[in-house]
Design a protein around this nucleic acid. Structure first.
Length: 266
DNA sequence: CCACCGTCCTGGCTGC
DNA sequence: TGCAGCCAGGACGGTG
């Protein structure tokens, strides 16, 4: 998916276009995107966008006058755009929020793995998420304690959103490479220095990706500039940028995993 | 707690 | 050129 940096980029790009706009209609061509389509159609119109934020990989839309919250998860292929009233239709626009001035806020999602959720209590969604990697709550000490309590391999642990919110397959691989930690290492086997390096690497790679508007993905962010800065993801067989050893790819926990066998031993 | 599998979906790429 | 098969950024639920 779109991971944390891509969602953050989306929130920053859409904020100026959406904040203050009122939603007057909701059109669903793929109702399964949302658990209760009729409720969405009934309750959302009339609300204005108060603010736009992000939590983990969710776009968080604060609404007024009621204090309901709209969450959008982009899944694997979701893309959010705001288009003029007379824009050509998008065959992949599964949900269209029509704004008062006629513009269309579109959720296009070819693979249909995305989600749209309207809730009264945001905790219904955020309560199942681990800490924000870029917030103060995510400290090296917290990471060390969390890892020490888990025996599973470190990469699948980093992908678990209830452990830490926002990392996906690309940035998990990148963070582990920067930290010099093998994705297969048991979480509780990392030494303190390795945990600290991993903590720094996670924050570094996410901040860098946000600065470059995320990574180019087929359906999502064709202009993301992080693509060329990836060191292992998608580079199987190519030399590690640090040591020249060919990058390896293997499947770990059902996910393709890229790493340098020399920089990330074990 | 954890490894592993299936499921939800479609489009693009690869190789025959 | 055509096309079947394989692959993909996520996440959940079930099983052992």
């Amino acid at each position: 998916m779109p991971e944390l940096p891509e969602v953050e980029t989306t929130a920053q790009l859409l904020g100026p276009a959406l904040v203050g706009s009122t939603i007057v209609d909701v059109q669903l061509s793929w109702p399964r995107h949302t658990p209760d389509p009729e409720r969405l159609i009934r309750e959302l119109p009339g609300h204005a966008v108060r603010d736009l934020g992000r939590r983990g990989k969710y776009l968080v839309v604060g609404l007024e006058p009621s204090d309901r919250t709209l969450f959008v998860h982009l899944g694997m292929s979701g893309r959010l755009t705001v288009r003029p009233a007379d824009a050509l239709p998008d065959p992949y626009a599964r949900t269209v929020f029509v704004l008062q001035d006629g513009r269309q806020w579109r959720f296009a999602d070819p693979r249909k793995f995305g989600r749209v959720l309207l809730v009264a209590d945001p905790e219904e969604v955020t309560g199942r998420l681990g800490p924000e990697p870029l917030a103060g709550e995510f400290t090296a000490d917290w990471l060390a304690a969390g890892m020490a309590a888990r025996r599973r391999a470190v990469k699948p642990l980093l992908l678990q959103q209830r452990f830490l919110a926002g990392l996906g397959n690309i940035y998990a691989d990148e963070a582990l490479h920067r930290a010099g930690v093998s994705p297969r290492r048991a979480a509780d086997s990392l030494k303190t220095g390795e945990v600290v390096r991993l903590w720094e690497s996670i924050r570094e790679v996410l901040n860098e990706a946000i600065a470059h508007h995320g990574t180019s993905l087929d359906w999502v962010y064709p202009d993301g500039g992080m693509q060329e800065l990836l060191r292992v993801y998608g580079r199987a067989g190519k030399p590690c940028l640090a040591c020249g050893t060919p990058v390896e790819r293997e499947v770990l926990a059902q996910r393709s995993t890229h790493y340098c066998p020399r920089c990330q031993p074990g």
